[in-house]
């Protein structure tokens, strides 16, 4: 099992679109994926669960991955967070 702390970087926070991207990415991996925040532990393959976190910019989350491809999954998920959910990229392409 892997655990890692991470901070939400994109300005609007983990709103609907980033939540959707996160769940979509997580669903590609076999590993179980949970997020810890404010003492809650939610299934991060559940978009409704992720949305109930309403994690804003600057919020600190802890990622928990458990399964055969946990390392690969962790790397991909952290990349997604670090990219700010491609929000800036989206701006540019408009």
């Amino acid at each position: 099992m892997l655990m890692k702390k991470i901070v939400v970087k994109n300005a609007a926070g983990l709103h609907a679109r980033p939540s959707s991207m996160l769940v979509q990415l997580a669903s590609k991996f076999k590993s179980e994926f949970h997020i810890h925040m404010y003492g809650y532990r939610i299934n991060a393959k559940s978009i409704l669960g992720v949305m109930t976190l309403a994690a804003e910019c600057g919020a600190e989350l802890e990622l928990e991955l458990d399964g055969p491809d946990e390392k690969k999954a962790m790397k991909a998920i952290i990349e997604l967070f670090d990219s700010g959910f491609n929000e800036m990229q989206k701006e540019k392409s408009r």
């Binding site: 609907a16 679109r17 939540s19 959707s20 769940v23 979509q24 299934n43 393959k45 559940s46 978009i47 409704l48 669960g49």
Partner: peptide, 16 residues
């Protein structure tokens, strides 16, 4: 398109 993708994910949500 993005909103509807999210709606599909909601319908298929494992916790739900």
């Amino acid at each position: 398109h993005g909103i509807i993708q999210a709606q599909i994910q909601i319908a298929e949500d494992p916790e739900l």
